[in-house]
Amino acid sequence: MNDKDLVQQVLNGNKNAFRFLVANHQRLVIHIVGRIIQNKEDIEDICQEVFIKVFRKIKHFRGDSRLSTWIARIAYNTSISHIRKYQKDEQSYDENPAIVAGHTNGEPNHKSLERKEAKQFLLEKIEQLPVHYRTVLTLYHLEEFSYKEIEEITEMPEGTIKSYLSRARKILKEKLEKVVENEKTNIFTEYV
């Protein structure tokens, strides 16, 4: 079933079609919402809110883009509205200079950093990046959207998206390199 048929079925009031739509897109939605919101207690409620909005607005879906792009946009906007409303003080909403420059503390104190730990360490560092960095990283690497689609979802210019991606990657690399230098670990020779 293609996007247009699925949307038509939902518009006809077919509950199973909507269930199918939710099941197919819940992974995408939770990745976007989870990366932006971060408060695990709120994530499920916001995912529900996203799908209720999808249902309400689905009659406006024109099929100009993929359905997943359209849903991702709703998830992004809902999450951003939520943090604007409830997490005004969250430091990482805007670009925190310390985080962006890579000067935050919290590197692990392990004597040696194992491969899995390195991955976990990076995942934690991703969560600490500013919200726009996390969002574009998730959309580009995890969900494999194109720059054009990310532009549609976030309304950021393509240049900004590319810049966020490269800066985020640079920050993560620097953090890992710093740990490697400090801990004098040899995980990388084992990793290959």
Binding site: G34, C47, Q48, L122, L142, K173
Partner: peptide
């Protein structure tokens, strides 16, 4: 390091929805 960063970027984050999430939302809607 690039490989590790790539792997981390493509790794599934640790967020979960209940198994019956789709049913629940469909009912609510």
């Amino acid at each position: 390091i690039d490989k590790l960063v790539n792997d981390a970027l493509k790794a599934e984050p640790d967020y979960f929805l209940p198994d019956n999430f789709a049913d629940m939302v469909a009912e609510k809607v």
